[in-house]
C-alpha cells in the first residue's frame, strides 16, 4: 500500500503517527482512504475537487501536476508539502 507521510500540522488526526499506509491507486483514492481512517483529514487537504490552495503533493519525491487524478503505485510515498516558488 502507498505510504503517506503526515505533515506535523495534521498529525493530531493520526494520533501522532508520522506516516500511515492506506489503499489507493490515485491521489483522490488515497485521500479518501485517509479520511475514512482519520475522519476530517480530507477537508484539510482538499477544497472542492482540488487540493487546497497553497498545498502541493509529491509522489515519490516528485511534485505532481495532475492534482487528485495523479496515479499512485502500491509502493509509492506520498508527501503533502507547502506550494512554494522562490525569488
Amino acid at each position: 500500500m502507498p505510504t503517506v507521510f503526515i505533515p506535523a500540522q495534521l498529525q493530531s488526526f493520526t494520533g501522532g503517527a508520522r506516516k500511515v499506509e492506506v489503499k489507493g491507486k490515485t491521489l483522490r483514492e488515497v485521500i479518501e482512504a485517509l479520511d475514512a481512517a482519520f475522519p476530517g483529514l480530507r477537508d484539510r487537504l482538499v477544497e472542492g475537487d482540488r487540493l487546497r490552495p497553497g498545498l502541493a503533493v509529491a509522489i515519490d519525491s516528485v511534485i505532481c501536476s495532475a492534482g487528485l487524478r495523479q496515479a499512485v503505485r502500491k509502493d509509492s510515498e506520498v508527501h503533502f508539502i507547502p506550494a512554494i516558488s522562490g525569488g
Binding site: 487546497r52 490552495p53 497553497g54 506550494a83 512554494i84 516558488s85
Partner: peptide, 9 residues
Amino acid sequence: RVVDLGEGA
C-alpha cells in the same frame, strides 16, 4: 476568502 495565486495562497 483565500485566493489561490498559482504559486501560493
